[in-house]
Amino acid sequence: METAYIEVRNLTKTYSAKNGNVEALKSVSLSVLKNDIFGVIGLSGAGKSTLVRCLNLLERPDSGEVFIGGQNLLTLGREQLRLRRQKIGMIFQHFNLLEQQNVLANVCFPMEIRGVPVRQRKEKAMELLKKVGLEDKAGAYPSQLSGGQKQRVAIARVLANEPDILLCDEATSALDPETTKTILDLLKSIHDTMGITMVIITHEMRVIQEICTKVAVLDQGTVQECGSVTKIFNHPKSKAAKRLLLIRDTEEMADVG
């Protein structure tokens, strides 16, 4: 049996809010194999973002363990964690680019953090911009780009540190269906050429269908079902999975009609 590249065990996370506590994660366990494109799907509020943010400890779980490549992140010191994070890329729904910096500077930023010399940074950044099809936008500012282009910049930026893991939190949720497709194609080709293990968080079934190999269905902070995408799409067992399929089908009907 293959060993897991990303493994979380019994993660729990409770947020305290004014009107009571929210159990965002209730003992979640998952393993992701090296090179998988692993989807996590669930409705809004299911705990998906909390889960993915625990994978690079943007959020610290209350209890449980997070193993990346066999290393327990929760035992790392501040500086070790900082260095490890440089190899765990993350892209976001709202892109999170530096608005006051141009595209080239944005892509250079992670390399600046690592202390790569300026000349090398720029060379590599241009190479990456070519890869995402934006070499002619190097001097543009994020405010001059479309959503899809911004996400491409974010993808070029995240690749600048040659991550072994890429976490995507609703990376296509702010985009229209066509742009979504091109971004997913880009992610897929990056996966195939660079061999990056990916975790894709989404509330949309079609994202999972498009690129994921495995999927976990999350609902109210617990994993309802987990397995290969084809298995879960053809034979959903949990209520949550059935409901998500129903949502997809009604949306497709609406698209046709």
């Binding site: 994070r85 999170n96 530096l98 600046e112 540190n161």
Partner: peptide, 20 residues
């Protein structure tokens, strides 16, 4: 979001203060 992105890239606090 942009601060979080910098944290996820492994930026030092100093970098986050000045650059971000």
């Amino acid at each position: 979001g942009v601060i979080e992105a910098a944290v996820s890239m492994g930026a030092r606090t100093r970098t986050i203060v000045f650059k971000v």
